[in-house]
Design a protein around this nucleic acid. Structure first.
Lengths: 290, 290
DNA sequence: TTTACCGCCTCCAGTAGGGGGAGAGTCAAG
DNA sequence: CTTGACTCTCCCCCTACTGGAGGCGGTAAA
């Protein structure tokens, strides 16, 4: 008649484990009080628990132990299980041994002066189909440019661009450039700036123009200071803008040895841009580093 | 510019795994389409994946691999990690080897004619304090009786006996025995029958009397057919009924080599029983087998 | 244009063997 | 009566994924 804590001490098994075995049906307490829920064990159950632990030491899973102990398994079945387990253990030992050999090999290589890249290299390079680059993007002339920091102001959006809200925003902000500045032409110095995607898929986007100062900005507009950065610049048509981003990240950058650098990417439109013409040219700027 | 399925085939890693590595931040696709959510990989990333797999083969966890690859670990740190892993692997091999020895030992014992009990026995018996049996129960005279099947009828309850609903039920059923039968005395042939506890802690309880037939039973009453069984019978006072169940299961049964058998247990009251007197005697019947 | 189909997405649940902790109830001593 | 030690259930966390439901994306046939 031991409470779970006493039994736990006596058998040197954690209380959590005993409750788990109870729940699994592997070792039920001799008596469970219907009203307090307290578990009571008897000393003789230490033997049962030791049986379980003995089988666990041999590497059996709790389910297997339950089968062995409860279903009063036959002797040939037990032998078969032991032999199966034996095979599994031999396999495990083989795996661990080969891992160990790998490690020792790498350690020796390190002592001989190799570096991480060589260490983790796998010998068999997989030969794969060539990349199918979109034809219309093949001849794209990409430039690398470093821009100083600059400030933009306009309308900000945070979300996943459901229902194409960003296009709607450009419609809305179009007639209001005068509230920020007085540009000579509608799309002169106009930028669409896009921050990094969050875990939930949302991102920040600002439709705006370059400004010198952010004073007297209407309350529903925002500004964004873009830091100095080195960019890869991709000229493209309005129609291909989506493909251009994809091409830039998934083809051009890996093949030319560039990596994405910190900082937002953006599109620059220019005074000749016409949102109604899908052939209209704009420029995609993506921060990169070698 | 490979979609996840293509990359998965090229690198021989499951799509699920690639998505998992993306989520972990271990291997992000070169480009993730903001609108469709599609992942795009580049062939050069097969190398990155191979680095990951190489480290995995050495037995590192994904977190460790991330540390190694991302944080541009120093050479001495890398060596230390490799050596640590080496030690772990040596330990694993030792464990597996001793498990294997245990298994082979048991297999030999089995061939020599041992049985399960001997196989799972652990050599060091833990010496423990004696059991502290409640004194008033020490002298309890327990009888083993086999009863034929019989039928009872009365009021049924299913639940966890919150707010002591079972006592309330006895109050309610008391004046209504006449609707079932015509007993000479109030508690003559009266039984409280208790089924096994469910997983959620609820159980079935019937407060009733023994009957010969269950015809003409009022709609709000139930019957319960108790099968033939062998019982351990514990006489006890109303006050000690709770302790008696506990003692029976957690002390008497293990110490006398009995196990709980299938079937409900019950209390038998008898014509002299007085629910107002805590010293009133009743009999607890618990199905047992050797 | 509709339909079918395949590939891809996200989100949820589950795996073995428990560990950690919250919030509430139990028990014995002072 | 209160206090402190003990226990209860319930829920989330760990690894390294796998499986499935329900819902888009994109293409080809009808």
């Amino acid at each position: 008649m031991l409470k779970i804590g006493e039994f736990s001490q006596a058998a040197k098994v954690s209380i959590k484990t005993l409750r788990y075995y109870d729940q699994m049906g592997l070792l039920k307490p001799a008596w469970k009080d219907r009203f307090s829920g307290y578990r009571f064990y008897h000393l003789t159950q230490v033997e049962d628990l030791n049986q379980i632990l003995a089988l666990k030491e041999m590497g059996f899973s709790l389910d297997q132990i339950q089968t062995i102990l409860q279903d009063e398994i036959t002797l040939p079945q037990l032998k078969a299980m032991l032999r199966l387990k034996k095979t599994e253990l031999q396999q495990e030992i083989k795996t661990s041994t080969s891992q160990l050999a790998l490690i020792e090999d790498r350690l020796n290589q390190l002592d001989a002066g190799a570096d991480l890249a060589q260490i983790t290299l796998i010998q068999e390079p997989t030969i794969l189909d060539q990349i199918n680059k979109p034809k219309e993007l093949e001849q794209m002339k990409v430039e690398i440019k470093t821009l100083p920091a600059f400030t933009t102001a306009g309308m900000k959006y945070v979300g996943k661009n459901e229902n194409n809200q960003i296009a709607a925003m450009w419609q809305e902000i179009g007639p209001r450039w005068g509230e920020i500045n007085n540009p000579a032409k509608p799309y002169e110095r106009a930028f669409g700036i896009c921050g990094e995607m969050e875990e939930d898929g949302s991102f920040t986007y600002l439709a705006g123009i370059q400004v010198d100062k952010v004073e007297d900005l209407p309350a529903d507009l925002n500004s964004w200071e873009v830091p100095e950065n080195t960019y890869a610049v991709f000229p493209c048509t309005l129609r291909d803008i989506h493909k251009t981003y994809q091409y830039a990240h998934s083809t051009w950058m890996p093949e030319n040895g560039y990596k994405r650098a910190d900082g937002p990417d953006f599109e620059y439109y220019g005074e000749h841009f016409d949102p109604a013409d899908p052939e209209s040219i704009l420029y995609v700027y993506i921060p990169v580093k070698k």
